[in-house]
């Protein structure tokens, strides 16, 4: 994901701002990292360049 995606996305639970912590960047994109809600503190992982913004109770549900 690109950092400016944060202008559009928010926490799926309370719709507040997300704070980025990038651990791996490549060509201006964040490949790995986390997004943390500034209100409720919930943390959402970024893996393979795609943030997982599912509500936490759906995150581990039914892998293929």
């Amino acid at each position: 994901m690109k950092e400016d995606l944060l202008d559009i996305v928010c926490c799926p639970l309370d719709k507040h701002d997300l704070e980025l912590d990038a651990t791996e960047r490549e060509d201006g994109e964040i490949v790995t990292g986390t997004l943390t809600c500034t209100e409720c503190g919930e943390t959402y992982p970024i893996e393979d360049g795609i943030p997982n913004l599912l509500p936490p109770d759906m995150r581990d549900e039914a892998p293929a």
């Binding site: 994901m1 559009i8 928010c10 795609i50 943030p51 913004l53």
Partner: peptide, 13 residues
């Protein structure tokens, strides 16, 4: 942009 999300709890402002 792409994001994994549920339509019933959209992570969009």
């Amino acid at each position: 942009g792409l994001a994994q999300a549920d339509a019933s709890s959209l992570p969009v402002r």
